[in-house]
């Protein structure tokens, strides 16, 4: 990753960028603000339009006019948004709206054709998913985060094993994994020695989320975390997300289901045809909001784009 030397306030947050009218709702102070969100001097990005108190906070993740072109087709065009520590944002959109391309750019699997990414105010460019991980972005893919043939604690510490005198500190790793999973809300796990293969989908989500929180990742990227889960397990995943937020992690959730998105996120961004077409705060009457968001997703009632 490349960290830019200095990022001064620019005018590029002006017209045409991301937020549509109605998006610039003030941050309500009730959001859990994790510790250690102090911006480094000089590297604080320009305040986004309509964020009155943004000058006191640095977004954990910010995208500015990010675009991605495949051949002649623009999969993603001028996407901008930001997520603050302790906040969850849901990215919604129909199939082909460009959500997964955005996810891949944030997680380092693809690099943007143009535009910039900032992690805690520092400009970053990822050459690989490992680089993104090192920069503090934990991506929880449905199928790409865990080794099914390995135990819970071995997965938890894979690539970051604790050692004493060259040998694995098994006792400490098992204990820390167990504690972290309890803390994230996974209380009924039979044993941290069991294979991940034998865990339910929700438990696997807990493991991935708990691991990201434990290793103090700044941004948690969840790609359709509830797609394969029962109602009950979906509730649990919301609990895990809530606890991650309480620890100051910024969460980006990619979803299909508007109702679920409104339940776990403070902010909802809708994409269509590769562009962000609306950005809304979740507050007040959610049923009206849901209708509006669903309208944005389907494009019904819009004259043209």
């Amino acid at each position: 990753m490349v960290v830019s030397d200095q990022h001064t306030e620019t005018a590029d947050a002006g017209e045409g960028v991301g937020p549509t009218p109605g998006a610039g709702v003030a941050q309500d102070g009730s959001l859990a603000l994790g510790g250690g969100v102090v911006a480094d001097d000089g590297v604080r990005p320009a305040p986004v339009v309509g964020q009155p108190d943004a000058s006191t906070r640095t977004p954990a993740l910010e995208l500015r006019k990010v675009s991605k072109r495949f051949g002649v087709a623009w999969a993603v065009r001028d996407v901008s948004f930001c997520i603050y520590p302790g906040e969850a944002m849901a990215l919604l959109g129909d199939n082909g709206a460009g959500k997964s391309t955005v996810v891949k750019m944030i997680s380092g699997a693809l690099s943007p054709t143009s535009g910039e990414l900032y992690v805690t105010g520092k400009k970053v460019r990822f050459s690989s998913s490992q680089a993104a991980r090192r920069a503090g972005i934990a991506t929880v893919y449905q199928d790409l985060g865990l080794v099914p043939t390995m135990s819970v604690w071995r997965n938890f510490f894979l690539g970051a094993e604790l050692r004493t005198k060259g040998r694995l500190d098994v006792r400490r790793m098992r204990w820390e994994a167990e504690e972290s999973l309890k803390e994230i809300g996974l209380r009924n796990l039979r044993s941290v020695d069991q294979n991940v293969m034998r865990m339910s989908g929700g438990e696997q989500q807990a493991l991935s989320i708990g691991r990201a929180v434990h290793f103090e990742q700044k941004v948690l990227l969840l790609d359709e975390p509830t797609a394969a889960l029962s109602v009950k397990e979906t509730e649990k995943v919301f609990e895990y997300i809530g606890r991650a937020k309480a620890r100051g992690v910024a969460v980006l959730v990619i979803m299909h289901n508007t109702a679920q998105a409104l339940r776990c996120a403070e902010k909802v961004v809708v994409m269509r045809h590769g562009r962000v077409i609306s950005e809304r705060r979740v507050e007040g009457d959610t049923s009206a909001l849901m209708e509006a968001v669903n309208g944005d997703i389907s494009g019904v009632g819009e004259s043209l784009q």
């Binding site: 490992q130 991980r133 790409l144 985060g145 894979l158 690539g159």
Partner: peptide, 8 residues
Amino acid sequence: EVAKNIGV
């Protein structure tokens, strides 16, 4: 793929 992704 997972191992590589995680940094192994």
